Amino acid sequence: MSALVATDLDRTMIYSRAAGARDVDRCVEVYDGAPLSYMTEAAAGLLAALADRTPVVPVTTRTRGQFERIELPGGPFRFAVVSNGGRILHAGENDDPWRRRVVAAAATSATLAEVHADLLTRIHTDWVGKVRVADDLFCYLVVEPSRQPADFLAQWHAWCEPRGWSVSQQGRKIYAMPHAVTKSAAVAHVRDRLIDDGLLRPDAPVLAAGDGRLDADLLTYADRAIRPRHGELEESGWTTDNLRITDSSGIMAGEEILRWFADRSTESSAPDAPVVVHSEP
């Protein structure tokens, strides 16, 4: 049966040189005039073919502007989830009702201004290169991990968690995110819209991929999920029901994930993929 494929991008589908991209790989993002992100040629072909026959939803913590720098094979996509679920793009335009819903839900946590102000008291230019507020929803740091204080992440998490925020580190970036802003909730909303539009069967499985803590709710929500053998979830040994872990790591894991998507999206049935009735996370 057809499936809904929801996939994280950075270090899942696309890779920088630092994350393992090679000279032979296809550049899919240019930033400030220089190549930044890559896919293998095989992965690019697999993604284009997959998007041609089943709904594919890119799901990323990148803001809209950062996402739109990427030239993903198979695009343009009918739906995309950006800002970690804080914004949904439909045919390239903002889904404004969804945005209002997310903002209202996030208002139950500490404000972005409060979190940002506390963050500034905890960091130093010795190990932090950038501090950014993203989409008026969350904030993040770009750090030098080798100089980062060993106790920073745990201490900041301990401050953020009771105030309704989570903390996640993915490579050189450290995010603070309101609990209400999740990838799974946004994908559930997209799924409902695709069903309402007659583009997805109600019993179609959700297949998902991601590598970081901010992807964990999406992987748990999916009927079947896959993560690469690298990243934040790999480092913590994270797992969940119906989760597959790739054999490869780095950019080759992206190719393996796409082959897995291609195989599972055309299966009529599978013993480890029961049909479930989804609800909003």
Results as ranks from 00 to 15, higher is better:
Ser2Val: 10
Asp8Gln: 08
Asp10Gln: 11
Ser16Leu: 12
Ala19Cys: 04
Arg26Thr: 12
Tyr31Cys: 06
Asp32Met: 15
Ala34Cys: 10
Leu36Lys: 14
Tyr38Asn: 11
Met39Phe: 11
Ala43Gln: 12
Ala43Pro: 01
Gly45Cys: 02
Leu47Arg: 08
Leu47Asn: 04
Ala48Arg: 12
Ala49Pro: 00
Pro55Thr: 08
Pro58Leu: 08
Pro58Gln: 03
Thr60Cys: 13
Arg62Gly: 06
Gly65Leu: 03
Gln66Ile: 02
Phe67Pro: 00
Glu68His: 13
Arg69Met: 14
Arg69Lys: 14
Ile70Leu: 14
Ile70Ser: 09
Pro73Asp: 09
Pro76Asn: 08
Phe77Leu: 07
Phe79Ile: 01
Val82Ile: 07
Gly86His: 01
Asp95Arg: 11
Asp96Lys: 09
Trp98Gln: 05
Trp98Lys: 05
Arg101Thr: 13
Val102Asp: 01
Val103Ile: 12
Val103Leu: 12
Ala105Ser: 07
Ala107Leu: 03
Leu112His: 03
Glu114Lys: 02
Glu114Trp: 05
Asp118Tyr: 15
Asp118Ile: 02
Asp118Phe: 15
Gly129Gln: 12
Arg132Phe: 11
Asp135Ser: 15
Asp136Cys: 04
Cys139Trp: 10
Val143Phe: 07
Glu144Leu: 08
Ser146Pro: 00
Arg147Pro: 01
Pro149Lys: 05
Leu153Pro: 00
Trp156Cys: 01
Ala158His: 06
Cys160Met: 10
Cys160Pro: 05
Trp165Arg: 01
Gln170Ser: 12
Gln170Leu: 03
Gln170Lys: 04
Ile174His: 03
Ala176Ile: 02
Ala176Glu: 04
Met177Ala: 07
Lys183Gln: 10
Ala185Gly: 11
Val187Leu: 08
Ala188Gly: 13
His189Thr: 12
Asp192Cys: 14
Gly198Phe: 09
Gly198His: 11
Arg201Trp: 09
Arg201Val: 07
Asp203Gln: 15
Asp203Met: 09
Ala204Asp: 10
Pro205Asn: 06
Pro205Trp: 11
Gly212Pro: 00
Arg213Gly: 15
Leu214Arg: 00
Asp215Val: 09
Asp217Tyr: 10
Leu219Glu: 00
Tyr221Thr: 02
Asp223Thr: 15
Arg227Gln: 11
Glu232Cys: 07
Leu233Gly: 03
Glu234Tyr: 14
Asn242Ser: 12
Asn242Ile: 01
Arg244Ile: 03
Ile245Glu: 13
Asp247Ile: 15
Met252Gly: 05
Gly254Asn: 04
Glu255Gly: 06
Leu258Phe: 09
Ala262Met: 01
Arg264Asn: 10
Glu267Lys: 08
Ser268Phe: 07
Ser268Ile: 04
Pro271Glu: 09
Pro271Gln: 07
Asp272Ala: 02
Pro274Gly: 09
Val275Ser: 04
His278Ala: 10
His278Glu: 12
Pro281Leu: 04
